[in-house]
Amino acid sequence: MAIFDVMGPIMIGPSSSHTAGAAKIGYLAQRVYDKPVRRVRIILYNSFAETGRGHGTDKAILGGILGLRVDDPRIKQSYDIAAQEGVDVAFEQAIDPEKHPNCASITFTDPDGDHPFVVEGISVGGGSVKIVGINGARVDFSGKHNLLFVTYRDVPGMMALLGDALGARGINVAYAQISRDKNTGGAMAIMKLDQPCPGDLADYFRSNTDVTDVVTINKLGNEYERAEED
């Protein structure tokens, strides 16, 4: 542990797992979605469902989805901010013993409910979180790494293309995971990188005709450390 893990984080109370962790799940989920949020459905599971109201878990997840950091006092007013920004929000509560005790499933859609994009996250304690599912694919990442997500038409050679281009820029890949969706013929690559993926490299990947989407997320610090500004 570090001294500032003991003496921190600075956060909105009352609970590191049920409030700060919830905000971080929401924040990471909207970063992965990477589109303006118009309509969102959130299912709180198990302990998040049982004690979420008293911990402000709903407000915190919604605050994160609206881009608020874990120490932003506006988390308390996140329903009002969502209303002002015209974001349609609904919560459900469910008990599912198959899922982690502190679990949330977040479904982003168009305003009319089309094009669902589902992110599932868990809060594992002390404000640490993991994203464990994207659109049904099992994933495993936190805000502790620089991340690169590429969705593409499932053609051979895509990993080589990504790896070569990153390697040419001296960016080491710490972890990579690929999955494909048989129904759509689409595939997704998630990479944890030792350095952030530069914007022009992301644009280079986007220019590939087989690539449908590229999202980069820089490592989050204790209170997100203004991750996307640097």
Binding site: V6, M7, G8, P9, I10, M11, I12, G13, P14, S15, S16, T19, A20, G56, K59, D71, P73, I75, K76, G126, G127
Partner: peptide
């Protein structure tokens, strides 16, 4: 203030 969703330092924990 922690119980009321105020801004706090979790030192060592929020509780």
């Amino acid at each position: 203030n922690n119980a009321c969703m105020g801004r706090i330092v979790a030192a060592p924990t929020a509780g």
